[in-house]
Design a protein around this nucleic acid. Structure first.
Length: 309
DNA sequence: GCCCAGGAAGGGG
DNA sequence: CCCCTTCATGGG
């Protein structure tokens, strides 16, 4: 096991608990207790862990990463050098101060940024992110997380680390090989066939005459074209597509129109409600400053969901 | 029991 | 194109 620490004074504002437990990613788990038990703004110094697939240009092999925030730094334990992996997954290279500074001066936005300053967007691996947000339909954050943990435990590769057995998130082939009923047994409900069929599309199963469809191909497209591209997957509409673009594929301008942000639009920016998804999305994206509108959306989402007004 | 949760698919107008 | 209903499941 390798260990180390990343000093945060060069990273800028950072809040690990808010980043990992704000409903952007469902792939981390607390190593020292149940997720979402306490939601204090800066209270947690919990250990979080995840099994990370190989990432092109970052890490060649599967890795286990465990991390906590304490004494102004990120302490980590891993199967390998976790520094580049953590930089990648937690977007430590984002200049958060500059992003906040470039954001429009809106009261709601200012309150959210002030309350949770330090929360970063995440950069999840794309297939687990896609499956996570297919599962997110009409579901609470803690239960979405539970679904991903159960899929990993049941269908993913076991990985030994520090005397315990963790499980990697299953790849497309592993999920495509499961039946709808096996997924329903994990309490996925009506999302089970969506997950199964999307996994088949990504895996390039024989039932798909067009061969494998790569969700990561959206990365190289223009924003709205990329969103349209992702909606070809079963269980993926405009909102889930925006989540994948924002939380995995570096489209920081993406503003997922979920129930919370729609409420915010109705209460604070009614002139941005232009009817259809694409038009409303365009309007609120411009209202939130364009380039980093997704950062603003994620802060507002977390702020409102925690009870802010 | 009712209502809701980071929605999407399928049908009809 | 938009509008409507249906789709599981658990917690308040």
């Amino acid at each position: 096991m390798e260990t180390g620490a990343i000093p945060l004074d060069s990273v800028g504002p950072f809040d690990l608990q808010a980043t990992v437990e704000s409903g952007q990613t469902y792939l981390w788990d607390r190593a020292d207790g149940n997720m979402y038990e306490t939601m204090s703004a800066h209270g947690g110094d919990h250990w979080y862990e995840t099994v990370v697939p190989p990432i092109a240009g970052v890490s060649d092999e599967r890795a286990v990463v465990r991390v906590r925030q304490a004494d102004g730094r990120l302490e980590w334990e891993s199967t390998t050098d976790a520094v580049p992996i953590l930089r990648h997954l937690l977007r430590l290279d984002d200049d958060l101060d500059a992003i906040v500074e470039s954001t429009p001066d809106l009261p709601l936005l200012n309150r959210a940024y002030e309350q949770y300053r330090g929360m970063r967007l995440v950069r999840d691996p794309v297939f687990p992110c896609l499956i996570s947000f297919i599962c997110s339909a009409q579901m609470r954050v803690s239960r979405i997380h539970g679904m991903q943990m159960r899929m990993a435990e049941r269908f993913g590769d076991p990985v030994e680390f520090d005397g315990r057995t963790l499980h990697a998130f299953p790849n497309a082939e592993q999920l495509a090989a499961r039946t709808e009923d096996e997924l329903r047994d994990l309490s996925l409900g009506y999302r089970a066939p969506y997950v199964q069929r999307t996994a088949e599309m990504v895996a390039g199963d024989a039932s798909n005459e067009h061969g494998a469809v790569d969700p990561a191909a959206a990365r190289d497209m223009a924003y709205e074209e990329a969103r349209e591209y992702l909606t070809q997957f079963v269980g993926v509409g405009d909102k889930v597509a925006d989540c994948v673009l924002l939380f995995s594929l570096d489209f920081l301008e993406a503003v997922p129109l979920d129930t919370w942000i729609r409420t915010a639009i109705a209460d604070y920016y009614p002139e941005c409600d232009a009817g259809g998804y694409a038009e409303t999305s365009r309007a609120i994206r411009e209202r939130f400053g364009g380039e980093y509108a997704g950062y603003a959306q994620t802060y507002v989402f977390y702020y409102l969901r925690a009870g802010g007004e």
